[in-house]
C-alpha cells in the first residue's frame, strides 16, 4: 500500500455466513461505528450482531398512506360534489360507500410508492459508484462470498491497529481499499 493515496477502509472476506456473524459481533464489541457487512442475501441475526437500530421507514409509509387516503377523499368530494356537481340516478353527490374503492386504491398506491422511493432514498441509492467496487474480490459479494468493510473515517481506525484487529477475525483475505 502506498501512503500517498487516501485509504477508504479495510475489506475482509469470509467464506461462510457463520464466520461472518461471529466476526461482526467482535467488530461491534470493539466499538467500531463506521463499518458494514456485505452479503449476497440477508442473514438472520445480523441486525443484532451489527447493532443496527430499527428504521424509520414504516413511519414514512404510514404518512404516505394517509396522504393518499386524504387526497383521494378530497379529490372525489371536490370533483363530483363541488366543482361539477354530478347528479346520477339520485345518488348523493358525495357518499362515502361509493367512494371507498378509489380511496382504498390510492391509499395503497401512495403507501407503496413511499415504500419504494423511501427505502432506496434512505439507502442512498441509486449510487452507481462506491469505493468497494474497485476491488475485484468484492464482485463475489453478490454471489457467494461475505465481506466486512471497516471505514478509515471510523474514530477508532488506526492503520496498524485495525489491520492487526482485522487479522484476528478469521477472514480468508484482507485487502486495503483506496478511496
Amino acid at each position: 500500500m502506498s501512503e500517498g493515496s487516501k485509504v477508504y477502509g479495510i475489506l475482509l472476506e469470509f467464506e461462510d455466513p457463520q464466520n461472518l456473524v461471529v466476526a461482526c459481533r467482535k467488530v461491534r464489541d470493539a466499538g467500531y461505528t463506521r463499518w458494514d457487512a456485505h452479503t449476497p442475501f440477508p442473514i438472520h441475526g445480523m441486525d443484532a450482531a451489527m447493532g443496527i437500530r430499527g428504521t424509520r421507514l414504516p413511519l414514512l409509509i404510514l404518512a404516505g398512506g394517509l396522504t393518499g387516503l386524504a387526497l383521494a377523499l378530497l379529490m372525489q368530494w371536490w370533483m363530483n360534489a363541488v366543482d361539477y356537481p354530478f347528479l346520477i340516478s339520485g345518488k348523493p353527490l358525495f357518499g362515502l360507500p361509493a367512494n371507498i374503492p378509489v380511496t382504498f386504491e390510492l391509499t395503497v398506491l401512495f403507501a407503496a410508492l413511499t415504500t419504494f422511493f423511501g427505502m432506496w432514498g434512505l439507502n442512498g441509492m441509486p449510487r452507481l459508484y462506491h469505493p468497494v467496487f474497485k476491488s475485484a474480490r468484492f464482485r463475489r459479494a453478490t454471489a457467494d462470498r461475505f465481506f466486512i468493510v471497516i471505514e478509515s473515517d471510523d474514530p477508532l481506525y488506526q492503520t496498524e491497529g485495525t489491520s492487526d484487529f482485522a487479522a484476528s477475525l478469521g477472514a480468508v483475505a484482507v485487502e486495503e481499499l483506496e478511496d
Partner: peptide, 10 residues
C-alpha cells in the same frame, strides 16, 4: 442502482 449487498441496506 449500485446495490452492494450492504447489511444496513438489507
Amino acid at each position: 442502482l449500485g446495490w452492494r449487498g450492504s447489511h444496513r441496506h438489507w
